[in-house]
């Protein structure tokens, strides 16, 4: 829809790599400090809408050694794990790619402001998918979503406002898929429409989409506009399907649309995105198991021996919200 050039996406949600680093560090530090101060990092929403860290539990907090906070790299790994999960869940529900991309961007934007130690990424992941469905007019009830993955849907509802608020209600996001469609159509025209090509173009488009799927899990969508993301995907796809000379196409594209824009500068961005895709890691649940355990004790240090009680308490918590 609306023009990307005047969008909140462009104005507020494209950063430099330094910005991101700084934001992740700030969130991590804050959670660390909370852990030192309160003995836990879990945030609760109060009735007046303010957030506060969970009350320290005096009972046996003294007896236990303080839980260790997550390092920023560990947070990153955990986010990567849940970002992969988002695609998993969206695939399971057969949601369109656009929803998947929207949910991923919501998730990424959310954790620019919060540490995973403050809000558990599993909850936020599901809430982001739920919110993406609403925003993209593919409404799925929280109950249905919860059922589909055997999670308590109340948790989704409890976090919905937090997520919307953390996103500043900037809910329209520009996924690269649309731009990609445009470029592929353009390539088709550029090379002339010949019958034997239509099959190849189809392959080109499909593999480029897969490239976009991958890059959506990197930091690239927080750093580059969707057009550049789409072109990088197209370039990678052209690298596989050799029948199209991407450089020639790019030159022609730039001369037609951005004559003042030097191609070298452009290639720098595409190369940077390319590197991120190459470095993309997909942690398995085994990889993050110990981090997850660490996270649990940060969120709620008394959780080990009192997991049953904890469940009970969270029910009370949700009643308070009514």
């Amino acid at each position: 829809m609306a023009d990307f050039t005047t969008s909140t996406h462009r104005a507020k949600w494209i950063f430099t790599p330094q910005d991101l680093k700084e934001k992740y560090k700030v969130a991590n530090q804050r959670a660390k400090q909370a852990l030192e101060k309160y003995g836990a990092t879990r945030m609760e929403v109060d009735i007046d809408g303010s957030f506060s860290y969970a009350e320290p539990h005096n009972d046996n907090a003294e007896k236990h050694s303080r839980p260790k906070p997550l390092k920023t790299e560990e947070e990153k790994l955990l986010r990567a794990f849940y970002e992969f999960k988002i695609q998993d869940v969206c695939d399971a529900f057969k949601f369109p790619r656009k929803i998947q991309a929207t949910a991923l961007l919501y998730f990424k934007r959310f954790y620019l402001q919060w540490s995973v130690m403050e809000h558990h990424p599993k909850n936020i992941m599901l809430t982001c998918i739920y919110a993406a469905c609403k925003a993209e007019e593919n409404h799925v009830s929280a109950e249905e979503l919860g059922k589909g993955i055997e999670q308590d849907h109340q948790m989704i509802l409890d976090n919905e406002m937090l997520v919307l608020q953390s996103l500043g209600f900037d809910l329209i996001v520009y996924a690269p898929y649309r731009a990609l469609e445009g470029f592929v159509n353009d390539v088709e025209e550029f090379y002339g429409e010949r019958d034997e090509q239509s099959e190849m173009i189809k392959d080109l488009r499909e593999s480029a989409k897969v490239e976009v799927d991958k890059m959506m899990r990197t930091e690239a969508p927080l750093l580059f506009p969707p057009g550049q993301l789409a072109l990088t995907a197209l370039r990678r796809s052209c690298g596989v399907h050799k029948f199209i000379d991407f450089e020639r196409y790019l030159k022609s594209l730039l001369s037609r649309q951005h004559p003042a824009h030097p191609i070298s500068e452009f290639n720098l961005s595409l190369n940077a995105i390319d590197t991120m895709i190459n470095k993309l890691e997909t942690p398995t649940s085994k990889d993050v198991k110990h981090i997850d355990r660490k996270l649990k004790s940060c969120l709620d240090p008394s959780s080990h021996e009192k997991s049953k009680k904890r469940k009970h308490r969270s029910k009370e918590g949700s009643n308070e919200m009514q």
Binding site: M1, A2, T6, S7, T8, Y130, A131, K134, A135, E137, H139, S141, A142, E143, I156, L157, E160, M161, L164, G168, F169, D170, L171, I172
Partner: peptide
């Protein structure tokens, strides 16, 4: 319907934001 924030509200806000 117990299904969270009003979708109408969400739609209106997100459009007006842009």
């Amino acid at each position: 319907d117990g299904d969270g924030v009003s979708p109408t509200a969400i739609r209106e806000i997100m459009l007006l934001r842009e």
